[in-house]
């Protein structure tokens, strides 16, 4: 039987701050990102070398998508989207390294002997994904406020299109805004956690009897490749959904004459040209 723990296990506590093994995973992911960024920017040039090209590949890919779908003000929030994408991607892929989730201390006695791993996938803890989702939530509210102003934003939020429908539609609208946090966090958590459980189950199934033991070298490998794909897709989905929410918050559905409209005209042309080229 596979042992599954929904909550991340506590490793040690510094005062009131509890350090769980998922936090270690997330910290490792950010450390890897920081080191990689430092390593590649120190030796970067206008003509990219081999390593720099490799590092620029995901950025180019994502920049293409953000430029294509982010509307005319994509430059404002592009760094935020890139950061979310790279962080979730690093956290997801780090969790597939050998040793993560398997090396740890055995705690408990008898029936309750369980392995408490030192490192666990960052996103396999709801706190991690909920934190990211809250950051995204604050970001799209902040971008909406900045683009439309407080009055415009509140009007957009609280007053429905035919004004007499407001009592009916506004609660639905508010709930749908809030449910974005839940759906964003639950999606990432569910996927990564289910991936971990899936890998453990496959290993447990193939090592159950001696006759199918050779399968234990093949079957989990196939699923690890699948998890590589899922990690990428989930990082992309989280980043793209955050971007969609931000663009929805920025977009003005009703024209209430803002001066910002004209200043960004040039950028709009630039984006249109880039779209045409792509």
């Amino acid at each position: 039987m596979v042992h599954v723990e929904i909550a991340a296990e506590e490793l040690f506590a510094i005062g009131p701050l509890t350090v769980t093994n998922s936090m270690v995973g997330a910290l490792l992911a950010s450390l890897v990102l920081l080191l990689a960024a430092r390593w590649f920017t120190r030796r970067s040039g206008v003509v990219p070398g081999r390593g720099q090209s490799l590092m620029e590949l995901p950025i180019e890919f994502l920049a293409g998508i953000v430029r294509g779908t982010g509307g005319r003000r994509w430059r404002q929030f592009a760094p935020f989207i890139f950061a979310i994408f790279l962080f979730v991607l690093a956290a997801n892929w780090l969790s597939l390294l050998p040793g993560v989730g398997t090396i740890g201390l055995v705690e408990g006695e008898g029936e309750h002997r369980i392995l408490v791993p030192f490192v666990r996938a960052g996103a396999a803890d709801l706190n991690f994904t909920l934190g990211l989702a809250l950051i995204s939530f604050v970001a799209f509210i902040a971008f909406g406020l900045r683009a439309n102003g407080l009055r415009g934003y509140l009007k957009e939020l609280l007053i429905a299109e035919p004004a007499y429908m407001t009592p009916l539609l506004t609660p639905i609208h508010l709930i749908s805004e809030l449910s974005r946090v839940i759906s964003l966090s639950m999606r990432l958590f569910g996927n990564v956690f289910a991936g971990e459980v899936l890998l453990a189950t496959m290993l447990a199934l193939t090592t159950a009897t001696i006759f199918i033991l050779p399968l234990a070298f093949v079957v989990p490998g196939v699923f690890i490749i699948l998890e590589l794909l899922f990690g990428l897709v989930q990082a992309l989905v989280f980043a793209l959904l955050s971007m969609t929410y931000i663009t929805l918050a920025i977009a003005e559905h009703r024209q209430h004459g803002s001066g910002d409209h004209h200043s960004s005209e040039a950028l709009e042309h630039d984006t249109a040209a880039a779209n045409g080229a792509a």
Binding site: V4, I6, I65, G68, T69, S183, M186, R187, F189, G190, N191, F193, A194, V197, V233, L236, V237, L240, L241, T244
Partner: peptide
Amino acid sequence: VPYILGLALTEAIGIYALVVSLIIL
């Protein structure tokens, strides 16, 4: 891109079921 987004939004329902069943288990 819209396809991936739609896929994610649709799949979220399945993920809710998964989370519920994991919590039950």
